[in-house]
């Protein structure tokens, strides 16, 4: 991947008005198509970092380049052409009277032609399972469905970088599966992603690179398999490995791969190991 980074942060520091230093000389490069998981304790600086990526916050020191553009000098509404940001709380964005209008809001702000907007809205409503409620008032839907509306409304803007803050929070099993499929569909078309979550299983499923933050700094940045296999590193940073990840790291310390974090694959690997042990030849 030799193309221009979609994110290039160099020596970025940020201090809030009350004196809290949220980012401390942090540097990170994200290339187009990369799927980056951002994890760490509450207060580690994850959200502050993400808000620098679409110009909501400007660094106290250092430079943030988004697709080569200095984010501190660009308006957030202009950076929205490149960067999509799914906020944690869906109620912070929903205001239109129908689901259809809510999902069309972002693409319309980008100045897309009506037929393109209609096409995208239909597509994303369909893959998020909202096709039957296009005329429903989104504010009256359940929290899970409101979350799905917010996911559809961000994905329909089809930016080159999407920042997702706890995308599966408040979703039931079926909704979470639909949300993950929708996100994966967007990633398959080449979008880069920064995923902020405490759900390590989701990190395992959706990312190929994981960054751990602590006290405004990056303390680990490596392949997701390697990071999630290091249960001591996770615990040191206030993260709780999922039981399956822990089990897999105990059973297969030498051959930990993301496939082992799926229950069926894990059981198959255990059976295979047992067979190998029973018949060493």
């Amino acid at each position: 991947m030799s193309s221009q980074p979609i994110v290039d942060m160099t020596d970025v520091s940020f201090t809030y008005e009350d004196g809290t230093r949220a980012l401390d000389r942090l540097s990170i490069v994200i290339r187009p198509g990369e799927r980056v998981g951002l994890i760490g304790e509450n207060g580690a600086g994850k959200t502050t970092l993400c808000k620098h990526l679409n110009g909501l916050l400007h660094p106290t020191d250092g430079v943030v380049l988004i697709d080569g553009v200095d984010a501190a000098k660009a308006r957030t509404s202009h950076l929205a052409r490149t960067v999509g940001y799914l906020f944690q709380n869906p109620d912070h964005q929903i205001f239109r009277s129908t689901v259809l209008d809510e999902v069309a809001f972002g693409p319309k702000n980008l100045g897309l032609r009506d037929e393109v907007v209609a096409e995208r809205v239909e597509h994303y409503l369909q893959i998020t399972g909202l096709s039957d409620m296009t005329k429903s008032p989104p504010l009256m839907l359940s929290l899970g469905l409101r979350r799905m509306v917010s996911i559809a409304s961000i994905l329909s803007m089809e930016q080159r970088l999407i920042i997702l803050d706890e995308p599966t929070a408040w979703l039931d099993y079926g909704q979470a599966a639909a949300a993950k499929a929708a996100i994966q569909g967007r990633l398959a078309s080449g979008a880069a992603m920064v995923l902020v979550t405490h759900d390590l299983q989701l990190i395992a499923e959706l990312t190929d690179r994981t960054v751990i933050m602590s006290k405004g700094r990056i303390v680990a940045d490596d392949g997701t398999e390697k990071i999630l296999s290091d249960t001591d590193l996770l615990r040191e940073n206030g993260l709780d490995p999922t039981p399956l990840i822990e089990l897999a790291s105990k059973f297969f310390p030498e051959e930990m791969t993301a496939q082992l974090w799926d229950v069926t694959d894990f059981l198959n690997a255990v059976k295979k190991k047992k067979r190998r042990e029973a018949h060493p030849s």
Partner: peptide, 16 residues
Amino acid sequence: ETMDQVKDAQVSRGYE
């Protein structure tokens, strides 16, 4: 604070 967060969410969707 909520109003600020809502404003952030809307400008992030390209709204002026």
